[in-house]
Nucleic acid binder design. Sequence first.
RNA 1: GGCUCCAUCGUCUAAUGGCUAGGACGCUAGAUUUUCACUCUGGCAAUAGGGGUUCGAUUCCCCUUGGAGCUACCA
Length: 445
Amino acid sequence: MINIRVRVAPSPTGNLHVGTARTALFNELLARQQGGKFIIRLEDTDKERSKKEFEENILEGLRWLGLTWDEGPDIGGDFGPYRQSERTAVYTAALQQLLDQGKAKKGEGETIVLLVEPQEVVFKDEVRGEVKVHTDSFGGNFIIARSLTDPLFHLAVVVDDEAMKITHVIRGEDHLHNTVKHILIQRALGYATPSYAHLPLLLDEKRAKLSKRSGETSLLVYRDRGYLPEAMLNYLALLGWNPKNDREFFSHQELVEAFNLSGVQKAGAVFSMHKLDSVNKYYLQKLSPQELCLASLPFLEKAGITTSDTQRLEQALTAEQPRAAHLTDLASAVEWVADSWPGNYETALLIWKKSDAATTKTLLEKMTAKMQEISEEKFTENDLEKILLEWIDEEDMGRGDTLWPLRVALTGRKHSPGPFEVASILGKGEVARRLLLAQEKFGSL
RNA sequence: GGCUCCAUCGUCUAAUGGCUAGGACGCUAGAUUUUCACUCUGGCAAUAGGGGUUCGAUUCCCCUUGGAGCUACCA
């Protein structure tokens, strides 16, 4: 069996697009599964629009997703360089060859034009089957270089895929038409044609190609919004590909084992934030307390939440975990554990919907006293629940009337984990302090 | 406009000639409950239309319709 060599060839004229990330993923999965090589090549022949910062964004995005590559601009390889801007000599030689053999001619200015005999070009696409296009549909001859030292996309792609011994070209459907031109160039140069597979496009809600205008397309923005890389990877993999069964969740390694081009869909796939969120939530729920803490750190920092007690922070994060869909949500939700918790919630929030201010204040006072009676050793979630519920029921104070204000007094939030859990995390001293603060909010009512 | 590709619930998709078209997200009703979330139970929701082929079409063929991509001295 031949060793496959696949590549992803982004153009550093913008941040890493989620669609490019998915294309990269599919390529990488196939390479890993077949024991082949995955290569990154930067197509920066557009000197005006190509920027170093975009190159860095692209590589960082792919790394964040957990993809690895065998050859690329950052690590080199046997078939480099991996930036087209550094490969001018190779293109010049190819262009000169075409000119010498009469397969291309000089066009307007310094341009070089490939001479095309009118014909029907047929190729087999691994996803779509046979595709036929007549050269008349695009006017036959076409420009392949601005000058002998300034190649255009079509020429550079073909020359590089040959030089880098690419066996399978897996790319977006937007390149389907380009494939015809690429095959024409390959034939003129005497190259073999690699195997082609065109992936369905990622679509926006209006079913148009996902673009900056229609939605967020930058992969790393999703990282910054609190998505986990394993969730993004899983979601992207299932967009336009499926394992032919009901399975929804895959690790990277599981994808390597399960992936195949025959499971690739032909129709475009809408990039749905709802589904992404649910996948992210699933992965967020699976994190261990330590992993959760580690993943949350940058977001806590950004939210300005610090705590001297890391164990307390870890407990708070775990307590909030079931209701978080993003790391950003989690970071803001856990605000109540911060050393500098302001406690500046609205007084009205303390009052349960079926209660009133006077009752609430009285019950908070009783609660404060009751808490004082409970020993430090009994300040655990289970014991607190047992003791307090028993007491509330005995005194007939009503669970909602009592527990709602307790919870708000401790967190200052409309939604939070239960009061027993929060109280046990904060500890007796802090609970007393916050209960007092809550009472003070009512003034001399 | 031309060329090309595509078409199953709102979305991602399974079923490829043969049970009441399955799952997930979403939506929704309920259970639980101090809030939200979690969890559990139930419900709504699709083969674009029309012709064929066949004993039988989601599935194969044709037409229509609809959608998308490409149509640069961008990639």
